[in-house]
């Protein structure tokens, strides 16, 4: 059991790292009181998923998936599909961050705070 786990860690350490990064992002999202830092946590969480997809596409000894101009066989390539997925997901992530920051700016303008606990107190008073 332990041997198997060590074996997996030695060969698939990238995946393990991604999930650690994901956990860090999620912890930041839940535990941090600052709204901007929460949003950074969301970003970290998403970035971990992007890295996971890039790791999935990796091929041992493969090169970048670009076909040469003369159309010759480029040989072993990394899978291009996950890269395309990640590019799209990054664009989506940027849009989400922009909307989230706009909302935070509005919350700050209305309540004068960025901290969740203070926000709760202010709202409870109203």
């Amino acid at each position: 059991m332990i041997e198997g786990a060590v074996d997996v860690l030695a060969t698939r350490y990238a995946y393990a790292l991604m999930f650690v990064l994901m956990g860090v992002g999620m912890y930041m999202m839940i535990a941090n009181q600052n709204l901007v830092k929460k949003l950074i946590g969301v970003n970290l969480f998403q970035t971990a998923i992007f890295l996971f997809f890039v790791a999935v596409a990796y091929v041992e000894g493969g090169r970048a998936p670009i076909v040469p101009a003369d159309g010759s066989d480029p040989g072993l390539m990394a899978s291009p599909l996950p890269h395309v997925i990640v590019l799209t997901a990054i664009v989506v992530g940027i849009a989400l961050t922009a909307v989230g920051l706009a909302l935070i700016v509005r919350i700050h303008a209305e309540y004068g705070t960025l901290r969740e606990d203070t926000l709760r107190e202010v709202r409870a008073d109203e």
Binding site: L35, L96, L103, R106
Partner: peptide
């Protein structure tokens, strides 16, 4: 109201997850 921005941000974080 300011409440709607807070509700939207809450949904944004959970929805993204």
């Amino acid at each position: 109201g300011p409440e709607s921005a807070v509700a939207a941000l809450k949904y944004l974080i959970l929805g993204t997850v």
